[in-house]
Write a protein that binds this DNA or RNA. Structure first.
Lengths: 211, 211, 211, 211
DNA sequence: TATGAATGAGAATTCATTCAT
DNA sequence: GATGAATGAATTCTCATTCAT
């Protein structure tokens, strides 16, 4: 289990260990099924100390979710895309998309267990959904919007489409690609991710009909 | 909360009530967080009787998941697509896709809470993933494969793409459409689903680049 | 340990056992020091069932305190005095006082451990004090007031005293008598309570100076 | 919260702070409910240092109780009465009693929270009762006995009473007066304590019957 | 000596499961 | 079969006490 980089949060050693173990166990078993005893054991600390750093078990989840959504969304989730869209306005669309997808896959790999927890809790709890929407989805949509508009102005991308639909389509293609790797990885072994991504981009850009 | 039609399972009244309530509560709070007391109360039965029908709480989940995956995959999930693909081989691709998407949305609406439980538990537990893969994904892929092959032969759909990628793309577009409605419905109000689906299909079929 | 009669409360068997054991243990060790495990053991029930009848441990205390203060104050604490004062207006003051003191001692004997808990919690918590004052002290004062006024009118008891002071004096003499028996019983063995009470009444009625 | 003068104990600064805070918190919440963390915080010291000075939390209680009972009983509690009884053998009984009551009220005001702790713990624990009895009650009784005997010899106070009963009566009248002020102070506002005490003495000395 | 982080035993509370009725 | 009271193991959380610094 790769450890998520939590250095940005300025936590002390134990606090970080607890969070790391919580992320691992919440993502493996779900929040309710992971016990404070297991977390303590995995983190190599006593059970008591957990409740010094986090008043309740729920607070560990909150730290993972809201804290990280708010603090890290900008740094980790959005920064990558912004940079690519900014630096590559002149590049061809295929290259840009490839960079984005690569970057997203790398990013999700980095934060995967955490992302999974957020994802699952977002399904169950509206407050989390709100945080995800406002901090990630909404912002990502705005960035994408600007980018698409410029590409459309240059006559590279179609003007007669609903940008929202396009955004969703690209996002979902990335998501399912990751899900396939992460969740159903055992059934689908890709040998060459580079080629796989090219194929996805081809379908996104050119559709599936014979022109 | 719409009730899922479980008549096909030949359950007796109490057993069905218990399953209905479990589906409702598992989908609302997650499996671990829903208690047998709550289920009993919601189902209007005694706690004791739950364990007559289902040896353990886990068995309720299994009943919901495995039982329903196996039984319903054929009857509800796959039947629809098969019929469409069978009956519409002559129709134009746009119409077929529209029918499929419509059918899937309708179907998911029908089984939504159950699908959500399956989905979440599949993320956590390999045995569920296996059941989902073998009973649903694999079968759906086979059907789609046949269909795509025929469309490609007729020179309607591109031959130079990876069918797996296309399958995933369509699936993910449907999934994100449903997720947006079900999970993030509060942020995105579509007025006209018919038009929305047309837009999605346009992007899938034609891509986003100016040809 | 004599058991307090809780039949008036219409509790079921286990609930009553739990309350009895709680009263016993709270009075022996104080509320905080008595554990639910001990209570369960003493009551001969499982720890779990305690929390079916009383949501929290604090609720057991509340049941003992407020419930009993409110419900039983009238029946147990005040009824006795009322009856004596009502029925004995013609008797001589010595006899009345003796009856009252006897009755109070008997009554406190009956509810002693409970009374002790109320007493100790009243020292610590204002809400309890309020309940004690409003349900017991205030009412007792009113009853005593009426009685004293009539005795004073008949020229049996002095008019030139503060009734509040007299009330307090009698009350405190009873209280210290009981405390001596209950708390410091080991140091003071009275052989003949009847005679003891006569002595107390003598002092209350006639004072200690040579007239 | 008035601070009790502990200078007589030759404690160092920290030790005294810890005791002061313990007295405050034990009297406010009871011994078991007050935590060492709270005490440390209130005393402005670290939790660790508490256990340097007092091996266990119980030892703080012992220090407060036994230590203070033993040391203070002689210096503060009994000295006052002794002095009064010694110096005022010639004075009239009313003046003496008034001095005693005044002195006791002043004294209890000074040590109130500590006295409350002693009182409550004495109810619960025999060892505390022993200490209270042997160090305070017994000694006070002896002093009172001497005093009463002399007053009786001078034909000022009645010979035909049980001195124990008289002692108890006076003690209880003082106690209830203080309790009323301290515990039920919110319900009974005396404007003039001097007059109040006169009334109490009147009742003690002359009784309540019309002679 | 002094700190306060860390411990772990034990407290309150929950809950799947059993069982007498 | 059906009930729901009862169980007790497991869970979350607390706190006196210890210990590295």
């Amino acid at each position: 289990m790769k450890k998520i980089d939590l250095k940005e949060l300025n936590l002390n050693e134990k606090e970080e260990k607890i969070l790391q173990s919580s992320i691992k166990l919440f993502s493996e078993k779900g929040f309710s099924a992971a016990t404070s005893k297991e977390i303590a054991k995995d983190a190599g600390v006593s059970e008591g100390i957990i409740f010094k750093y986090f008043k309740t078990k729920k607070d560990i989840l909150k730290a993972i979710l809201l804290h990280l959504i708010n603090i890290l969304s900008e740094k980790i989730v959005l920064k990558g895309i912004k940079d690519i869209f900014k630096n590559d306005k002149e590049c061809d669309i295929k290259t840009v998309l490839k960079k984005v997808i690569y970057d997203r896959i790398k990013m999700v790999d980095k934060i995967y267990p955490m992302a999974q927890i957020i994802f699952m809790e977002a399904i169950l709890h509206e407050e989390i959904r709100d945080a995800v929407y406002n901090n990630i989805i909404k912002k990502a949509m705005e960035i994408f919007n600007d980018f698409y508009f410029q590409m459309a102005e240059k006559n590279i991308l179609r003007k007669n489409v609903d940008i929202m639909v396009v955004f969703r389509s690209i996002l979902s293609n990335i998501a399912i690609f990751i899900a396939q790797k992460k969740i159903f990885g055992k059934y689908f072994k890709f040998e060459n991710i580079d080629k796989e991504i090219d194929k996805v981009i081809d379908v996104i850009l050119n559709g599936i009909t014979v022109q």
